[in-house]
């Protein structure tokens, strides 16, 4: 139990540090910034109460916001993502695992299911993030570039993190 909590805290700090020190400085095409911190919400056990996702999403977003000088943007988008993630997780859970308690991963869910789950979750997060940040649909082209670019980059980082995690698990 303590180990689980410690590993959660470790992921929490790792993702924040990665975002704050590295990824926030990436602006591909001028807009696209990878935001793999949403990965933290993807690897929470499926038996948690839904409010935990919401609350953790908010706090993670809040800390990201503090470091990126975007008060409210990441917290609002990640909080909303936290509301949807359990629902998406339930959708992608294979029928034979519905009764079990598990931590979502490419191993427990299956590679494609986990990828789809991660893709949809991060799409929701990046879309909300950019809509809230730009706060207008006037520059819809740049909005679209930001959303799609960030989404793809985020997904690449999530795949990398996931492969790292599963490799660590195998050892």
């Amino acid at each position: 139990m303590i180990q689980t909590i410690l590993s959660r805290i470790g992921w929490f700090l790792l993702l924040i540090s990665l975002q704050v020190f590295v990824l926030n400085h990436i602006h591909m095409l001028g807009y696209a910034t990878p935001m793999p911190y949403v990965y933290f919400l993807l690897i929470l056990p499926n038996n948690l109460s839904r409010w935990v996702w919401v609350a953790l999403g908010f706090f993670l977003g809040l800390i990201i916001d503090v470091f990126t000088n975007t008060p409210g943007v990441a917290s609002a988008s990640l909080c909303a993502t936290g509301l949807l993630v359990p629902f998406l997780l339930k959708t992608f859970t294979p029928t034979d695992k519905e009764e079990e308690v598990f931590i979502p991963s490419s191993r427990t869910l299956g590679r494609m299911r986990f990828l789809s789950f991660a893709a949809l979750s991060s799409l929701v997060n990046t879309t909300l993030y950019f809509v809230i940040e730009l706060f207008s649909f006037y520059n819809w082209a740049s909005l679209l570039i930001g959303i799609v670019g960030s989404w793809v980059l985020t997904l690449l980082f999530i795949i990398a993190l996931e492969s790292l995690r599963s490799a660590a698990k195998k050892k």
Binding site: S49, R50, W51, W53, V54, A55, F58, G61, L62, D65, T70, P71, G72, V73, S75, A76, C79, A80, G82, L83, I132
Partner: peptide, 20 residues
């Protein structure tokens, strides 16, 4: 969780409008 969500979203948007 929905109420918590609404509460936290309100907090987020207060931050958003207050500091941006």
């Amino acid at each position: 969780y929905v109420f918590l969500f609404l509460l936290l979203e309100i907090a987020s948007f207060v931050l958003l409008f207050r500091f941006n």
